[in-house]
Design a protein around this nucleic acid. Sequence first.
DNA 1: ACGTTATATGCACCTTGTTGCATAGTCAAA
DNA 2: TTTGACTATGCAACAAGGTGCATATAACGT
Lengths: 185, 185
Amino acid sequence: MSLKHAMLVSLVERPASGYDLVRRFDRSVGYFWRASHQQIYRELPKLEAAEWVSAEAVAQTGKPDKRVYAITPQGRAALDTWLARPVGPEPVRESLMVKVRGAALLGVDAVLEEIKRHREVHADKLALFRQIEREDFGQGPGDDRKTRCRYLALRSGLLYHESWVSWCDEALALLSETPPSSDVA
Amino acid sequence: MSLKHAMLVSLVERPASGYDLVRRFDRSVGYFWRASHQQIYRELPKLEAAEWVSAEAVAQTGKPDKRVYAITPQGRAALDTWLARPVGPEPVRESLMVKVRGAALLGVDAVLEEIKRHREVHADKLALFRQIEREDFGQGPGDDRKTRCRYLALRSGLLYHESWVSWCDEALALLSETPPSSDVA
DNA sequence: ACGTTATATGCACCTTGTTGCATAGTCAAA
DNA sequence: TTTGACTATGCAACAAGGTGCATATAACGT
């Protein structure tokens, strides 16, 4: 429900083309909301039809023309409404956990590999986020609201990947040492 | 992609009707994979068409008739294939974080309420999971594979909600004390 | 001349998930 | 006797997301 709103938030900062939005989603916004370029380009005409954004064609030299979108007052109002509307946490969907449940019944080997792979992915993200924390927030979370919000977004990613790495370690320890015959014991 | 497989895993334990599956998803499986009854009933004919499950009509006294589904050897094979196929972590999609990013630009008040609500939800889950941990795993994670997998699923939920509660506390502290004029300072 | 990378935009098809509605039998309580 | 709770199963419409494919300009290197 909130791809539209994530795009609006991005457009509040400054107007952008579809391509710009894709890149923003790949960078900052993408830490907490993934979207493919197909999805984004598909939403833009809808946002325009709802008059939440206005579009302007911009000719460029040396590059293809582009369409630059800006948020409208109606879009801004829609965003305010959405911000005020309480929404619960996203429902959890973890296929890794489905596999762990499967491991209980079907054997643990394939899942151990999978857990190792997940650990690696999360550890990489964690290292990246820790580096950003050192570089951008070595002096603390900052004083103004904007900086602190960026800091909190980063912290959210940090805590998330930290807890996953911890879990993977626990899981690898517990499942590796389990005697193979334990399921019939 | 893994609602089908989550259902198969559930059916490996024992055959079940659609209604049984719904209840299992609401209870144990639902800690890491949500599914509505509409979704589950929609998948069942597809699983049957793929011959991953077989169905049998069962007449009951005192209750409506039901269709009981059991996993087939082909279903079991499909499940093994899926377990062995590496899949990355689920993409992150956190509308709360989109709102926090919005708060940086549009004001913090609505989002503070939202964070408080999230904290409450996560704290409730956490309390529940801690209670289950005490009751079922007071003596530790257990010795056999099945128990340990249940334990790990629980741990995953625990760590997840713990990290959210921590984040909410950080966020409330940082955003409450931010001087309201800081965005123009 | 040829491939690669970056810019820039999209369509088509399919799967997955949500929302609202619909039906029907049994049982217990009010 | 009606109301509500539990069992049991679904359809229709829509929103959201994923996969694959398609196109075009222009800079840069080889």
